[in-house]
Design a protein around this nucleic acid. Structure first.
Lengths: 189, 189, 189, 189
DNA sequence: GTCTAAACGAGACGGTACGTCGTGTCTTCGG
DNA sequence: CCGAAGACACGACGTACCGTCTCGTTTAGAC
């Protein structure tokens, strides 16, 4: 029961914001040092609440963009899937989420903890939403039974992340629709 | 004018090998220090020839796996594409290339030079090979004209890289075939 | 007056004891943190009553060993002085006081407050007792008039402290007697 | 045989000087950080050559004051001893050595390595010189045979160090002579 | 054969960031 | 008013790599 000095919300905010700002202004993950300085907070405080700058960044990312998953069951299946992918494409291209995710993906590869967190809290929710629509489609007979949903989901989402990372091709406005169109004939009844 | 002491091939080998071994035994990129020590070479020599450990790793990777691109025009288009993707899947799963690429992709995100090199020397050749087959297919009327080849190539390859990075689903033996099957109906005439 | 919750004697005891135990088990002064933890007390409480761990240690030391000064005027002067030095030697060698004093002397050098306290409350009482006997000796004609009492006291006590600090020679049982014997011919009539 | 970049003498000098200056301007041992900053040298370099600031200080101290030991066998024994003690008193009072030694003694109490070094390289040489003269005195029949030289040496030197530490009495010009006078009757034949 | 320019080894050095520890202060609640 | 719990800023710690530098020492091929 709330003993001791309560954690300062202002500082938490300052830290999350500082991390995001630094990350957006650079290719590389901000250092704990830099975040602390920018946020006007001591390094000790940082380490007390987060194990790494990636964790700080991730927390800020999730807080800002947690509400970006489409679960509208009234939409036709294809439209729902397209909306999902389209939401992702816009997120990656038009919001800070894209740049932040790039760096978090880099960190994920070398740091297992970040990988787990990012997978569980970012990727999986989106994958599950898509799988949900696919299964709904199978139920109502719009999607071919026996479809490998995991694979379809990867086919839908992977190109967007791929282009985010490599930058070899743009994240077009119609990317989502085209990707869905590419996959749809193979999975519809 | 080959004046002066020529560069030692043995040392170059030792360095490339040391880098690969270290990378395979760890999640993170080896440090220049570690590579030099492992190769029995002075740090000076390393810095003389490569700007970063990622560059060392990349050079070794390309040297080992440059011959892994399928250009056989006698195969039917779909078989040729499947073979391409399948070759990639096996490379990523069954050879050191997978682990090395993971780390190089991480480095690419934060280091523009590595990104450029990896894109130009690893990704593009494979993409071009696939595009070549797609265009061949359009020429012989097997592929629908007007197909967005860049998108199709991403749809074919991205899932494999995606699973390499995230590890959320396995790089199955039949992944290549399934991915091609998923895309094929939408692009064939 | 007497308002509010009175100070807890148990905690004071626990703190003094914890400090002494920690000091005896280490070369270095215990930290405030460690004392608080060991005593099962919050750091706040510590800082409320003592400015430093040296102060805690000193208070405990004085409490335990305040009664160790010989003022028996019935003894002959030389015997009284010898008894004084002997008491000190035994204190330094056979009781916790030795180890505690070592650390307090270390702290005294860098911290003026500790130095003053230790000087006033530990050194001076003992010096005055010795000076008292010397002056008594001068009064009864046993000690040469005009003797530099301050110097003699230093000559008597300093070797013991010196050996405590450096450990280059043992604090023998007969150290006190030998030191007195060394000085006596020069000060007796 | 001198491979690699040779160690910079200037930096070594700058470090030793910086440490001494900082120590003289403060009660407490300088931090490694402060020494590095003051010397215009990186912390890494400091840690490469010395394990602690006490070690830096000690090296500087020994370098400056190694030549302060009197070994003149032509002097009468008592004069030689008095000269020894007098040299020490002047060193402690009139040169930086006094303040530096204070802090080194403090460090010695809590750090075994410093203690050993200081004992071996500062105390022992001086003690041996004094013992040498005492033994010479015994040989020529001026000092009573069977004299406990170790004790006499402590009686001669300890008061000076004692006053250095506590500051309860001054290091007078005639301190050396008085101390010798105090001890002499008991040891001369 | 010698000359010579580059490759190479050894290691010093300045830097930046790391993650931890101890300090002393402050804030909030409960006895 | 005492005390517990704990957040916080600060400063120093000792370490790891980084990239650069300054030497001395090979060594193959040009002369």
């Amino acid at each position: 029961m709330g003993r001791g000095r309560p954690r300062s919300v202002e500082r938490r905010r300052a830290i999350l914001d500082a991390a995001a700002e630094l990350a957006l202004g650079s290719q590389t993950l901000p250092t704990m040092d830099a975040i602390a300085t920018r946020a006007g907070v001591s390094r000790t405080t940082l380490y007390k609440w987060w194990p790494s700058s990636a964790a700080v960044l991730l927390e800020g990312l999730l807080e800002r963009f947690h509400a970006s998953i489409e679960f509208d069951d009234d939409l036709p299946v294809r439209a729902a899937l397209t909306a999902q992918v389209d939401a992702l494409v816009h997120l990656l291209r038009d919001t800070p989420a894209g740049r932040l995710l790039r760096q978090l993906m880099s960190a994920s590869i070398t740091d297992a903890a970040t990988a787990t967190a990012l997978l569980d809290q970012w990727m999986e929710p989106r994958r599950h939403a898509a799988i949900h629509h696919l299964e709904r489609g199978m139920t109502i007979g719009e999607i071919r039974p026996g479809t490998d949903t995991a694979l379809v989901v990867d086919a839908l989402f992977a190109p967007a992340y791929h282009r985010l990372i490599w930058g070899h091709a743009p994240l077009d406005d119609d990317l989502a629709e085209h990707v869905c169109a590419l996959v749809w004939p193979a999975i519809t009844t």
